[in-house]
Design a protein around this nucleic acid. Structure first.
Lengths: 142, 142
DNA sequence: CTACTTACTTATCATTTGATAACAAAACTA
DNA sequence: TAGTTTTGTTATCAAATGATAAGTAAGTAG
């Protein structure tokens, strides 16, 4: 297989990943937050504590818009802001108790859908899947 | 590894896929179309000819909004609408010459970024990547 | 032929998102 | 200390997106 064919395969593969991700995550989030807010919360969940700048960089949202959305999340009591004691310009963002509860619920829905998707997979299948994800994450999606 | 751990790995994996996809595709599209319009064109590109209903289903856009965006793409001469001769309610959407040119340019940018990402991969790496994508597409992202 | 369904369109409205300018406060640097 | 950079905020505006109601035209079923 030449490199052009590998690219085509990559296109098809990523399309499938996006498709399935959408299936598993749709309607999992609470209606009280917007899609962008959910993405931010998801990022905070796996990376906390994070600064607004990091959120801005990783989620590709401008600082003013990041600040606005964080303010809204804060007003909804889903996150907490802590000032860095060293550099008082910086803030550390964490999920609040409520935010954690909300994200746990969302993740539980997604996980149950995920588990039912692999319900019929054999032990060998699971190991194959695991290995394949490791390979791709190391060699392609680093 | 238990199934919970596999789920965690899946979360991390899909996050990476989305991250890298974003890197490779950012600014590849023409400024004259919106992100949603690009997604629609991308779908048409790989699946043409398609009906508005199929676009609506697969891209998760309501029929009224799909219709609106297709109208805009049509006004920009990027797509062509053909009525089905059998069932005259149906339409078949295809890229126009201009639409193809635009999508070819976008894909060329993405592909060159993709190729430079795997520039350092050995022949074995390429084969591993290829196999891993096959496995995941068959067993997980079907 | 009538009623119902399907495929798509038009119009309208509210919300979300993205972009920009202007600002403030803290930290760094020469 | 004066000027610069970093980090974040506020305000404002335009564009993109999502949702809904109402309508048309073609096909289908009784």
């Amino acid at each position: 297989m030449d490199k052009k064919a590998l690219f085509d395969k990559w296109v098809s593969f990523t399309t499938s990943v996006h498709q399935v991700t959408h299936e598993l995550t749709q309607n999992a989030k609470s209606d009280s937050i917007t899609p962008v807010q959910y993405n931010i919360l998801e990022y905070i969940t796996v990376s906390q504590p994070v600064t607004p700048s990091e959120i801005s960089d990783c989620q590709h949202i401008s600082m003013p818009n990041t600040s606005r959305e964080l303010k809204k999340l804060s007003e909804k009591d889903l996150i907490e802001k802590l000032s860095d004691t060293e550099d008082r310009r910086k803030q550390y963002i964490r999920l609040s108790k409520e935010g954690e509860t909300m994200m746990n619920e969302a993740f539980a829905i997604v996980e149950s859908r995920f588990q039912s998707r692999i319900r019929n997979a054999s032990k060998e299948d699971i190991e194959d899947i695991e290995r394949a994800m490791d390979i791709l994450q190391t060699k392609l999606f680093y």
